[in-house]
């Protein structure tokens, strides 16, 4: 089998193993967490012990830990994420529409981050002087401002002030949704864009100083081709790392922004479910976040290998 084929199989195996381990940690953590779902369900009213017993039996709350984990895991593998204790509906149904909003928000923000971050980084790296200084100053500010603050400023200026964008809600239909999600996506993207821009700039600057770039110049290759073939191409490895991790992190970061813009997404739902001790929902969402993160990371690893053939399956550089 080819080197690349072996590499992909190893990566796939690693992915499954990581997810399995993560699922155990997620289930274990929620099992250990304080709070009793029955108390939330009964709303503090005194309920006779028989009812409580039947509720506990219904949700398998008294089964041994491992057997509960096994049931949960096999359920997930069959596409059954369990039932919400509070809403008494299938978790997968509850997540469906919310996932759509969050995915769209994250993808929108990711596109903004990659397009703006990498462009700004390249421009700053290649144009020393005023342009570079302005971009560096802007990104320093961008990194320092937390996303909830950006969200508030954006709402005040562009939504309530200028009235260009809606204040809240996810919208209906694709274009309307994009319009509704523009401000949230920007709020989510600002600090990551700044980070990606700075690291892109650093990666390109480092590559510009490499000896092989000098070799290309000494052979009379025009500068723009030197930059494209030898600088940008080589700087793609660190840029891909940062971009991958940043985008994966957005899934978690979206939770704050969803709150600020009253978007009924996964993040908002997670916070809600945690406060209500709705274990099945919390477990499903956390596992979903972890899975997204792990899958994106694996994709980044595969991209690396395609960019730079020196990277070996074992992860040795």
């Amino acid at each position: 089998m080819s080197e690349l084929g072996k590499f992909l199989i190893r990566k796939l195996f690693g992915l499954v193993a990581t997810l399995l381990a993560a699922s155990f940690v997620v289930f274990g953590a929620t099992a250990l967490a304080p709070g009793d779902p029955i108390a939330v369900l009964t709303g503090g009213r005194s309920v006779d012990p028989e009812t409580i017993a039947s509720l506990r039996a219904h949700y398998h709350l008294d089964d041994p830990f491992l057997s509960r984990y096994w049931q949960w895991l096999t359920g997930i593998l069959h596409g059954d994420l369990g039932q919400s204790i509070i809403a008494r509906r299938d978790v997968s149904d509850l997540l469906a529409s919310r996932t759509e909003t969050t995915v769209l928000l994250v993808v929108y923000a990711a596109v903004l981050i990659l397009a703006a971050g990498i462009t700004l980084g390249i421009v700053a790296a290649l144009r020393k002087g005023a342009v570079d200084n302005v971009i560096m100053l802007g990104t320093t500010a961008g990194m320092a401002i937390p996303s909830f603050l950006t969200a508030i400023v954006l709402i005040v200026v562009f939504a309530t002030g200028l009235g260009w964008f809606p204040v809240f809600g996810p919208g209906d239909g694709f274009t309307d949704r994009l319009w509704h999600l523009t401000l949230p996506a920007i709020a989510l993207a600002v600090s990551s864009t700044a980070l990606v821009a700075r690291l892109t700039r650093a990666a390109i600057r480092e590559e510009l100083g490499k000896e092989h770039v000098e070799t290309a110049i000494s052979r009379g290759i025009p500068r723009r081709l030197v930059v494209r073939r030898h600088v940008l191409r080589n700087a793609m490895v660190p840029i891909t790392t940062v971009s991958g991790l940043t985008v994966a992190g957005l899934v978690v970061g979206s939770l704050v922004v969803e709150r600020a813009f009253s978007l009924n997404g996964i993040g908002a739902f997670l916070i809600d479910s945690v406060t209500k001790s709705d274990y099945p929902v919390v477990q499903a969402i956390v596992l979903l976040l972890v899975a997204t993160f792990v899958v994106l990371n694996t994709l980044v690893d595969v991209l690396y290998r395609l960019i730079d053939s020196r990277i070996e399956p074992g992860g040795r550089g």
């Binding site: 092989h212 070799t215 290309a216 110049i217 073939r229 490895v237 730079d308 020196r310």
Partner: peptide
């Protein structure tokens, strides 16, 4: 200057490993 480098002079560097693009 570019033409001069193309037609007239060629440099051989000290450390070939550093002076040849590793990803191509």
């Amino acid at each position: 200057l570019r033409r001069y480098r193309v037609d007239d002079v060629a440099m051989i560097f000290q450390d070939p490993r550093a002076s040849i693009n590793p990803v191509r």
